[in-house]
Structures are given as structure tokens and as C-alpha cells.
Nucleic acid binder design. Structure first.
Lengths: 150, 150
DNA sequence: CTTCTTGCAAATCATTTGCAGGGCG
DNA sequence: CGCCCTGCAAATGATTTGCAAGAAG
């Protein structure tokens, strides 16, 4: 029961919050926009206002449950926080893949140190062409959050 | 005479474009928002509309003269394209520093390859605290583009 | 001259906020 | 039952676009 996750975060376990959390969990592999979450809820016949989605996602972000990204297209995408990792994004189909590399991690740390920075977080995104057969070469509607593919 | 840079890019050498290019060059070390460029022009008694700034910056981007970034705060910052490099950003004062690291570069290439991606570009940003004496601990007005410091 | 540009105001888009009614603890 | 939460509509802020008047080649 994920009501606990919410309580732990100091949030009442309300229906909208549970539903939104559910959507995020069912789409662990994806990175959804607020609209994307909205769409999926509508499709599931859940009647939740878009404003609420934004509010809840921000609360989740503050609670550390979710991470908000601003990739190159400017608008925000959300994903459950599942530990540190970086992203590979296909510029043709929008497919997003995750990866983690110790060596790069290390290097970042020492580079920040060299500049006297106390590093708190980072963002590394590799953009390219995923070259897969089913790369549909059509970027998903930014509003849809339909970022799955491949 | 930078009129040439413009002509080469297929753009007429108009006053607004020259002035904007000038601002970008005088602030090579910085990363300005459209508003930031606007402010500086106003301060120089140049009467150029904000819409024009946006239009020109986009044209410059298309022409490859300028790079548009979307750091974590969501709104766009521009800088002259001076070859590949990554960024270190102080979350307290907004200071932005640039760096370049071959090892990370290499690693990125091989990671993309491993995933079958044809890499075309990347973004690496390290966020932290610059810890300098003059870190004013006050983020610059996002609209100002006053990103210099330290 | 003809076409590319600009300035201004109006239009969009994503996201945020105010407020009155509802629901969790 | 009180305070936190939601929905809706209106407010915002950044960026874009339409259009008529102006310059560049």
C-alpha cells in the first residue's frame, strides 16, 4: 500500500495523489509531462484536474519522490526517483533510455572539486538517433508524455 | 566587421542583429536570457523590441552562431557557440563556469555506442555551491540574464 | 523596387494561483 | 469537526506570431 509513501512524505493519502503515484509507477520506464499524466488519468476515467496534477507533482518533487527534468525542449518531464542515473534521448522518436557510469561520476566529482564547487547534483543527457527498427521517427506530442518506444 | 558573420549565415546585416551580436560578444563569459540581452540594449539606449530579440536569437541559433540552453530553471539562456564545453552552475549566486573534459567526452561516446545510439550532442551540467567569497548567495533575476559573478 | 526585417500588440503555451466547496484523519 | 486538498477559472510569465510600416541589397 503506497499510502504509506505518501504519509511518510507528510501528505494525506488522497485519491488524486494515489492515482498519480500509480500512473508514475505503471510508467516507471517513461518520463511523463504533467499533461501526459493527465491524459492517462482521463483515459482511465479518473476525473482529476490538470492543476491538481501540477500541484501534486510539485509536492512529490519536494518530498523527493519524483524528479523533474527540463530536457532541451524546455518543458518539464517527471519520473519516479529511482536513484541517480543519466539519460540518452533519441531525437527522432523521443525514446529515453537510462544509464549510469561510475567513471563519469568520478570525473564529475573531481572536476567540480578542481573548480572549488561543492557539487550537489548534475544532469547529463546524450542526444542522438536510437537507430532501432521501430524508431518511429516521430516525436511524441510533447503534451502527451508518450515517451515510450523501442 | 561581423556583418560578414551575418551574411555568411544568410542574414541581412541589420542594426538589431549587429547590436545583438555585439552584446553576445561583449558577454562571452556569460549566458544571457532574451530579456538579459534586451536589458543591455536598453541600457545602451538601443531601441530594439523584445520580440526582435527572440526572433534574432532563434535565427542565430539556426545559423549555428548561438546555442540555446535550458538549465534546470526552465527558461532559455543563450551563448555564442564557441565549441563544445560543459557547465558548472552555482545554485546560490547563479555563476556559470565552463569546462571541458576529454575523458568524459570519450566515455559518453562509448556509452552511446553501447546503446546503439548515434550521438549528435549532449548536455552535462554540474550544479552546486561555488563557495567563493563573493558568492552573493542571491540568484540573479532570471529575467536579467545577469549571470556574471565571482 | 522587392524582399527580408522590425515593432507593437495580440495570441499561445505551460504552469501557477485564488477561492469556495469537499474529504481525510 | 478543522485543516488540508481539489477543481475550476482566472492570472502569469516566457516566447511566438500577425500585420503594416521600414530598411537592405
Amino acid at each position: 500500500m503506497q499510502s504509506n509513501d505518501l504519509r511518510k512524505a507528510g501528505l494525506k493519502a488522497t485519491l488524486p495523489r494515489l492515482k498519480i503515484l500509480e500512473v508514475l509507477q505503471h510508467n516507471r520506464a517513461d518520463h511523463l509531462s504533467a499533461e501526459g499524466v493527465y491524459r492517462r488519468l482521463i483515459d482511465s476515467n479518473e476525473d482529476i484536474g490538470l492543476a491538481t496534477i501540477y500541484r501534486v507533482l510539485s509536492q512529490f518533487e519536494d518530498a523527493g519522490l519524483v524528479i523533474r527534468h527540463h530536457f532541451e525542449d524546455g518543458h518539464a518531464l517527471f519520473e519516479l526517483d529511482q536513484g541517480p542515473h543519466d539519460h540518452l534521448i533519441c531525437m527522432k522518436c523521443g525514446h529515453i533510455e537510462e544509464f549510469f557510469d561510475d567513471e563519469i561520476q568520478e570525473r564529475q566529482k573531481s572536476l567540480a572539486e578542481k573548480s572549488g564547487f561543492d557539487l550537489s547534483k548534475h544532469t547529463l543527457v546524450l542526444y542522438g538517433d536510437c537507430q532501432t527498427a521501430n524508431c518511429e521517427n516521430n516525436m511524441p506530442d510533447h503534451t502527451t508524455g508518450k515517451t515510450t518506444n523501442k
